[in-house]
């Protein structure tokens, strides 16, 4: 899918070079939730972080974005809920279509707040608010103007159950979110994102700051969650991608090098660069 300009450099083990040819849109048989089309992204300083990305996002599946640092995977992920709008002068080009309505997520005519109400995000470092566990989860409902106490109670419990945290915190809902361990904090952040019933859940390296046991819990959770929500996850950990993702995209230098079903990518990558990355020869 991607193109390698000089295969000899690749085989010698140093960083391979990529040109910017238009990548064809990968075809998948699963029903789609979103579709990235000819997507370019420019930071405020003019740096182009993403070049012509074409990628499908399967409905109720886990899509993993992998690649070395600086390859643009987080940039792509944060485009899905317009996080880049927080910092002015960042620029999008192309389209990210949200299905089934067929609306362009990055269209300037669309209010980013509407997008964020449908596409939630969990960040790399657990970032609960310095408020109680209850208030952390209820915040998404409160900003929507929800005031019905009983309804909020129900949704908070459901979200905490959904994030496999309910049994651990049900007696301490008034405790500060910071009183929890790192792994619990991250699950709290997942519950917070779940409370508003998003259609897509974005994970930006959610286990990078966690120990192996907490990581395993989060991974189980992701697999569980895909029954109800479409998941896109950025990860540095290739084993993690292999364990939990249905589809995997390998990105490099702002380009999508290869996109396929996860077992296909890990067992039989079509692009030699993908194979080199997966076998640890660069990145």
């Amino acid at each position: 899918m991607g193109m390698i300009t000089d295969s000899s450099t690749v085989s010698s083990g140093s960083a391979p070079q990529l040109a910017h040819p238009p990548t064809p849109v990968p075809r998948i048989s699963d029903p789609l939730k979103a579709q990235v089309e000819s997507f370019n992204f420019f930071y405020a300083n003019g740096f182009q972080a993403l070049h012509g990305i074409n990628m499908p996002i399967a409905d109720n599946q886990v899509t993993a974005l992998i690649g070395p640092s600086g390859c643009g995977k987080s940039t792509l992920l944060r485009s899905f809920n317009r996080m880049h709008d927080l910092y002015s002068k960042n620029r999008y080009e192309g389209r990210i279509i949200l299905l089934p309505e067929n609306i362009n997520l990055i269209g300037p005519e669309l209010d980013p707040i509407e997008i964020r109400m449908r596409v939630s995000m969990v960040f790399q470092k657990p970032n609960p608010f310095p408020k109680s566990i209850y208030e952390n989860v209820a915040f998404g409902l409160r900003v929507r103007g929800e005031t019905n106490k009983r309804y909020i109670d129900e949704r908070v419990e459901k979200a905490l159950r959904g994030a496999a945290l309910w049994d651990e915190v049900k007696d301490n809902l008034d405790k500060s979110g910071f009183a929890l361990s790192g792994g619990q904090q991250q699950r709290l952040c997942i519950a917070r994102a779940l409370a508003t019933d998003p259609e897509i859940l974005l994970f930006d390296e959610p286990t990078a700051a966690l120990d192996p046991i907490s990581t395993a819990k989060i991974e189980d959770l992701v697999v569980e969650l895909k029954k109800t929500v479409t998941i896109i996850i950025v990860t540095h950990n290739m084993q993690q991608a292999a364990r939990i993702a249905d589809y995997t995209a390998f990105m490099y230098l702002g380009q999508l090098v290869e996109f396929d079903q996860t077992n296909q990518i890990f067992t039989n990558p079509s692009n030699p660069m993908t194979e080199q990355y997966l076998t640890g020869r660069f990145g």
Binding site: N81, L86, I113, F123, N127, P128, V143, R192, A193, T196
Partner: peptide, 20 residues
């Protein structure tokens, strides 16, 4: 990250300012 978490949940700027 706090600001991003609030904005990411669909809060407006004012809600982020007011609550966080």
């Amino acid at each position: 990250t706090i600001r991003e978490a609030s904005i990411g949940l669909g809060a407006t700027k004012w809600q982020t300012v007011r609550y966080h």
